[in-house]
């Protein structure tokens, strides 16, 4: 399944991804970095496309069943 992952070390926590996510899967953790709730993420790539810092990537990920 495709999921968004954030390079938290370089994330600027601007919140563009959280605003653009159609599933509200992204929250900004205490103003430090974006956090993706993988249960909600559908891998649509909207956040990847919009992230001004280009620190989000949607990758194939194994989800524990």
């Amino acid at each position: 399944m495709k999921k968004a992952i954030v390079n938290t070390a370089e994330c600027v926590a601007c919140g563009v991804c959280a605003k653009t996510c159609p599933r509200q899967a992204i929250t900004i953790f205490h103003g430090i970095y974006a956090h993706v709730n993988e249960d909600l993420c559908i891998g649509c790539k909207k956040c990847e496309k919009e992230c001004p810092a280009s620190v989000i990537q949607v990758v194939e990920k194994e989800v524990a069943s």
Partner: peptide, 12 residues
């Protein structure tokens, strides 16, 4: 941010 609201200003 000092009040602990993070980057809510940037975000909203």
């Amino acid at each position: 941010s000092i009040m602990g609201k993070g980057k809510i200003y940037c975000n909203s």
